[in-house]
């Protein structure tokens, strides 16, 4: 099974990368953009998708500063 993990800065933590992107978009004429956050994505094939949460807690994300979302990807 293929899992996709989306990791982003926790709400309330200053995200300068997101802010930089947010400031850059209007400069290109894209108005009406707010709350931009930049995170990372990890994709992995796993035998047991129920274990991905534990993988996130222990390695893929740092729960103190990041939140994560696990999606199962159809192939």
């Amino acid at each position: 099974m293929r899992a996709r993990v989306l990791i982003r800065p926790k709400e309330g933590i200053l995200d300068p990368q997101g802010q930089a992107v947010e400031r850059a978009l209007p400069a290109l004429g894209f108005d009406g953009v707010a709350n931009v956050h930049v995170g990372r994505m990890v994709e992995l094939d796993v035998d047991d998708v129920s274990r991905v949460g534990e993988m996130c807690e222990r390695l893929l994300a740092n729960p103190l500063i990041e939140e994560y979302e696990i999606l199962v990807v159809e192939r």
Binding site: P9, I13, L14, P16, Q17, A20, N62, L64, I65
Partner: peptide, 16 residues
């Protein structure tokens, strides 16, 4: 910090 031997975490510099 990652090992949990110290509290907190280090984030990218504000200046990037």
């Amino acid at each position: 910090c990652e090992a949990g031997l110290l509290p907190g975490a280090l984030l990218p510099n504000l200046s990037l």
